[in-house]
Structure formats: C-alpha cells, structure tokens
C-alpha cells in the first residue's frame, strides 16, 4: 500500500499481513484455546486487542476465539496467559508458520 503524505493511512490487518509469507500447517494449529468454565479470563480477552497479528476475536457468544494462520510467532499471548491455563501453545512444526523475508 502507498503512504501519501497528506492522508492518514491505517491499513486493515489483512492488508498488513498480505505481504508476509506463511506456510500454514492445515488442520494442525500451533495455538489452541482450552475454554474455561465460567468464561474467559481478562488476560485472554486482552489478546483480542493486543495480539499484533489480530489472531484473537470474540465470537457471537462473546467467547474468545483464535485463528493462528497469520501468527508471527512472537509469544505475547503465551506470556500474557501463562497463569490462566487457557492456551495450548507450541512452535509450529519445523518449516511451518511465518517465513520472514527481511525479518
């Protein structure tokens, strides 16, 4: 996308991630939510805002969902939710996941 001096450009997440390269491990996501009885923790809900790849969203029932296809493997979610037990997080299998061109 082009950044013209006069206007404020705020790309959508899809545009932002469009240039990145990924090798998606279909059917084998490396981040899974283990839903808690009685609702999601504040930590898990915070990820809807602070995941840099926008992988977390609220579903119609108001619960947090994850779609890790655009994940940049930073580990922020893992650290924020370490005490809640709501995330099953591992590295993607070797060769899968994000592949940085410039890093």
């Amino acid at each position: 996308m082009t950044n013209k001096a006069a206007e404020t450009t705020v790309p959508r997440m899809e545009e932002r991630l469009y240039q990145n390269r990924y090798m998606v491990d279909e059917g084998n996501p490396h981040v899974r939510i283990l839903p808690r009885q009685g609702g999601d923790s504040p930590e898990l809900r915070a990820l809807v805002n602070i995941c840099p790849a926008g992988c977390y969203s609220l579903n119609e029932a108001g619960r947090v969902e994850v779609a890790a296809d655009g994940c940049m493997e930073c580990g922020t979610c893992r650290i924020v939710c370490q005490g809640t037990g709501e995330l099953d997080w591992s590295w993607p299998r070797g060769g899968y996941g994000v592949l940085f061109k410039f890093g």
Binding site: R16, T76, F102
Partner: peptide
Amino acid sequence: MKEYVAHL
C-alpha cells in the same frame, strides 16, 4: 510496505 513483523 513489504513486511510486517512482531517479536519479543
């Protein structure tokens, strides 16, 4: 813009 990355 050709790449967007995140890292700790």
